[in-house]
């Protein structure tokens, strides 16, 4: 499988390592800055290209780890060239763009996979399997938390490029909530940035009301000091409960004298695993392509998560709950 990488940021690196683990050496890379692509190419024993067109000539699959506002255009170019696509989340910044991406891939007979990686985190997957097996009874209250520090690459902080914290970070838990809870009727959101638009920090609470009568509270933040990233899930059903918190599941704790520590530019949750979730995700994508089997996360799933994120943003602006029957 010949794979081309777009983007050399945190996700580009995570995907490149995952491809290596999956036995694939990247066929090439591009970046918004040629020197970044060259450095990345050297590090990953691949070739830097000047343009997307040049890269597409040597690959079967394009891996898009570029800022979100570029997803649609890159997907369209790749689909027209007949390349399969794996693209970072969120799928796009608007329903219109997401639909266009899905349609162009469908009409050019290429496959599109949106990297909603949380579905490949073992604790999230195991919790979903326990709920689906019926061990918890019916879902009642779902609590999800994902909070880190403001990312340093500037495009994240530009809402016209990333959609902001609610779109970029909370999309993970919107997708997970939909996976567990099904159809959502209502979305209500409050956030720090809605009150303090000039701040890089953000913190938000989003409440979902499901058609089933279940409810979810999703908490997201770029709110902590640099280096802190915390996630948790709490799934309460009529017959049982699952709790998990990143605070209490680290297998290694570090009480060494502090040195100048290297903090990543973008907060990413970490668990010590034989196979990291990005690798599990890439292997799943590769396997599904090679065997023509379905993806565990469909572009429609990614679109549904985007719709929740957009409803949350609409709620932040209006101060009202968004009832999804009349939304879009």
């Amino acid at each position: 499988m010949r794979v081309g990488m777009v983007g050399t940021g945190s996700m580009g690196l995570a995907h490149a390592n995952a491809w290596l683990e999956a036995g694939v050496r990247l066929s090439g890379v591009i970046s918004g800055h040629l020197e970044h692509a060259q450095a990345f190419a050297q590090q990953h024993h691949t070739q830097a290209f000047q343009s997307l067109q040049d890269l597409l000539e040597v690959v079967d699959v394009l891996d898009i780890c570029a800022p979100t506002h570029l997803h649609r255009e890159m997907t369209e170019v790749a689909a027209l060239a007949g390349k399969h696509i794996i693209c970072e989340k969120p799928i796009a910044l608007s329903v219109q763009d997401a639909r266009a991406m899905i349609e162009v891939c469908s009409s050019h007979k290429v496959r599109l996979f949106i990297a909603q990686v949380v579905r490949f985190f073992p604790q999230y997957r195991a919790a979903q399997e326990i709920l689906k097996s019926g061990q918890l009874g019916n879902l009642g209250v779902l609590r999800l938390k994902r909070a880190g520090y403001p990312p340093s690459p500037t495009w994240f902080l530009d809402e016209t490029k990333s959609g902001g914290m609610v779109m970029d970070l909370m999309i993970h838990d919107f997708d997970y909530a939909l996976w567990l809870g099904g159809q959502v009727s209502r979305v209500y959101a409050t956030s720090a940035r809605a009150f303090h638009p000039s701040s890089n920090r953000d913190y938000a609470l989003v409440t979902l009301g499901f058609e089933s009568g279940a409810m979810a509270q999703i908490e997201g933040g770029w709110a902590y000091p640099k280096g802190t990233f915390r996630t948790s899930l709490d799934i309460a059903g009529s017959q049982g409960l699952i709790e998990w918190h990143s605070d209490s599941s680290s297998t290694i704790k570090n009480f060494l004298e502090p040195q100048d520590t290297d903090v990543g530019a973008v907060g990413i949750p970490s668990s010590v695993l034989t196979e990291d979730p990005y690798t599990t995700q890439i292997k799943h994508f590769k396997h599904a392509l090679e065997n023509e089997t379905p993806f565990d996360v469909t572009p429609q799933d990614a679109l549904a998560a985007l719709e929740i994120a957009l409803a949350a943003r609409e709620s932040l602006q209006s101060g009202r709950a968004v009832h999804l029957a009349g939304f879009r």
Partner: peptide, 16 residues
């Protein structure tokens, strides 16, 4: 507020 009774159908009050 989201309010419902997903946990105990035998009671006549909200549980969540």
């Amino acid at each position: 507020a989201e309010v419902s009774n997903p946990f105990y159908p035998d009671v006549d009050v909200d549980t969540a």
